[in-house]
Design a protein around this nucleic acid. Structure first.
Ligand SMILES: [Mn+2]
Ligand SMILES: [Mn+2]
Ligand SMILES: [Zn+2]
Ligand SMILES: [Zn+2]
Lengths: 139, 139
DNA sequence: ATATGGTTTTGGACTCGGTCTAATGGAGGT
DNA sequence: ACCTCCATTAGACCGAGTCCAAAACCATAT
C-alpha cells in the first residue's frame, strides 16, 4: 500500500479513482517519471484517464509538497514522490536513469559570502552525472 | 573585443557576419542568455539574421566547447560563454538572474561509494537558489 | 574574372512538453 | 431529489526547439 496515498488521505484530500491511480503509480524508491510516463501507467489501471487530469493531479501534489519536480535533463520534468527526505540526484548521461543520493558535507556552507552577490541563499541542489553500470556494460 | 571571437578565429572557425554577431552578443561575465535573447540582440546588429542560424551557431559553439548550455530553470536553455573556468550557479528564484559562483570544497568527494550505485561518476553540478538584492528590495 | 562545389543561411513546417478553456460529469450536503 | 462545487475531459493553444529543402554565399581551381 502506498505511503503517499496514506498521507494524502490523512490530509483530507478528496480521493477519486483518477487521483488514486496517479498516487499509486508514484509510489516507490528512486521513482522519477515524466508526466507522460505517469499517464501511460495510469491508463493501464484506469483506461479513460486523461492527460489533463494527470497534469492537474501532479500539479496539486507538487503544491501540497508531497511530490517534487525534478529537472535533471532539459526535456520533460520528472515527478519524485520522495519529498520527505531531502536528497540529491545521480543521473546516467546515456540512458537518463536517476538515483537518489545523500552526499555527506554541506554545500551550502561552501559558498563564501564574497560569492553570494548579496543574495539571500536558501537552497542548493546537487546533480551528479555519470554512466550507469548497465550502460557501461552495453558500451 | 571579444575573447570568444579571438579563440574562434584561432581555431580556424569560418567567420561570417552572422557568426560574428552571435559571438559578440555572448561576450562578458555572468552572461546567461536564452537563444531568443541572443537572437533579439543579434538582430539589433544584423537585422536579417534568422532564428535558425542563431540556433545553429549556438549548437556549434557548444560542440566546440566554447559555450556551455545551462538549464537552471525548466524553461529555455541558457548559453554561457564562461566555458574555460569551471563554476557553478546562483539563481534568483524570483527574477531568474544568474551569477557565476566558485564554492570552496569538492562535492565530488562528498559522494560515498555506497551512494554511487555502480555508476562511473564524472561530473557534478551545483545550483544555489535564493533572492537577489534587487528582488529583495522590491519585495 | 568565372565557374564550381561545398558550406552557411533562411523561412516555414513540424515536434514535443506543457497550459488553458469551456463543457460535462459526479460527489456531497440540504 | 436537487443544488452547488469540484474534478475531469477533449481539444485548442503555446513556447522552445528541431528539421528540411531551397537559396545565398564563399573559397578555390581554372
Ligand atoms: Mn529523487
Ligand atoms: Mn555561468
Ligand atoms: Zn544508463
Ligand atoms: Zn531577482
Amino acid at each position: 500500500m502506498s505511503d503517499l496515498l496514506e498521507r494524502l488521505r490523512g490530509r483530507g484530500w478528496r480521493m477519486t479513482a483518477q487521483r488514486r491511480v496517479v498516487a499509486e503509480v508514484l509510489d516507490g524508491e528512486h521513482v522519477h517519471l515524466t508526466a507522460d510516463e505517469v499517464h501511460a501507467r495510469a491508463v493501464a489501471k484506469l483506461p479513460e484517464i486523461s492527460r489533463a487530469t494527470v497534469y492537474n493531479t501532479l500539479g496539486e501534489l507538487v503544491s501540497l509538497g508531497e511530490v517534487l519536480e525534478v529537472a535533471t535533463d532539459k526535456r520533460a520534468k520528472r515527478y519524485d514522490p520522495n519529498a520527505h527526505r531531502p536528497h540529491h540526484h545521480l543521473v546516467c548521461a546515456r540512458c537518463g536513469e536517476i538515483k537518489d543520493v545523500h552526499p555527506s558535507g554541506n554545500p551550502m556552507a561552501d559558498l563564501p559570502d564574497s560569492e553570494r552577490f548579496g543574495f539571500k541563499v536558501s537552497d542548493v541542489e546537487v546533480t551528479y552525472r555519470g554512466i550507469c553500470p548497465n550502460c557501461a556494460a552495453t558500451a
